[in-house]
Write a protein that binds this DNA or RNA. Structure first.
Length: 271
DNA sequence: ACAAACGTGAGC
DNA sequence: GCTCACGTTTGT
């Protein structure tokens, strides 16, 4: 049904009614910016043990920040190294996997706080923090916000960590869908917006129809043209399309690497 | 269930 | 500060 929508819009007024605000490209630069220098395959396929994981976690001040050199100023002062700031979280995924593989990342399950906490609701989060500490055997605790995990293909299910049945398409799909901590229901205070996938037909559409209710009612509606509304955003986070792509497994076992291996064997990660 | 209105996050 | 547009609320 919805797929039968005339994507071209009524009478395809692509040229005639294109709002001057609408760029000639389907995506705003900001959207494209969410691309990463490395594909997921890169992260997964890179044999990691030799990688300096420690440097990932504690980049030395003198360490050049490659990402900075080429990019414009960051919008916000990063509270964490850029890898954590990555919009898609792939850098975080990278780090997490490296830690896992190197055996440096010990997920401290919520069992450490046995003092009464007994359920998911008992997380040690507060309205602002929402953090759980993990201790990589590096001698220092570092905050690992559970809210970040959905980005990396992790998911909290009950009291254990789960990982997406990753696959390049899995993670990158989620990333493409713009799922961010807040949008996944994590966000008490920090509601985040998903972003357009940039891939679907509506996203690729370049102009507003200027005829749909959204276009006509733009000032009040604050909505993008109906024919440009991203298909992914039409889906509810947590809806069928979402859930089916996040089949979890227990991360507290070594299933994480197992999952990676499975994905490899499936050839899903080969780029 | 759908659409309109509104609040507000995010990019420029 | 302005604009765009996602998410939520409200009205039908």
């Amino acid at each position: 049904m919805s797929t039968a929508v005339d994507i071209a819009g009524p009478s395809s007024p692509d040229q005639a009614h294109s709002s001057s605000k609408i760029p000639n490209e389907p995506l705003r630069p900001s959207l494209k910016r969410s691309n990463h220098p490395y594909s997921l395959s890169h992260y997964i396929s890179t044999p990691s043990p030799a990688v300096d994981v420690k440097a990932l976690i504690q980049p030395s001040p003198a360490q050049p920040r490659a990402a900075q050199s080429g990019h414009t100023k960051p919008r916000r002062a990063p509270s964490w190294p850029d890898m954590w700031e990555s919009p898609s979280g792939l850098h975080l995924a990278h780090a997490a996997e490296l830690l896992m593989r190197a055996g440096l990342l010990a997920l401290t399950p919520a069992t450490t706080e046995q003092g009464g906490g007994s359920g998911p609701e008992e997380e040690e989060e507060d309205s602002s923090g929402c953090r759980t500490d993990f201790q990589p055997f590096l001698g220092a605790w570092f905050p690992f916000s559970p809210a970040l995990f959905p980005l990396t293909g992790f998911q909290m299910g009950g009291s254990h960590w789960r990982s997406a049945a990753i696959g390049a398409e899995g993670i990158e799909g989620l990333v493409a869908e713009g799922y961010s901590p807040g949008s996944l229901g994590g966000g008490g205070g920090g509601r985040r917006k998903r972003k357009r996938c940039g891939e679907c037909v509506p996203c690729r559409r370049q102009t507003n129809c200027e005829q749909c209710s959204s276009c006509r009612n733009r000032k009040r509606g604050h909505q993008i043209c109906k024919y440009r509304k991203c298909e992914e955003l039409k889906r509810k986070p947590g809806g069928p399309g979402f859930d089916s792509r996040v089949s979890g497994f227990d991360l507290r076992g070594s299933d994480f690497t197992l999952g990676l291996a499975q994905e490899r064997s499936n050839g899903a990660l080969d780029g």
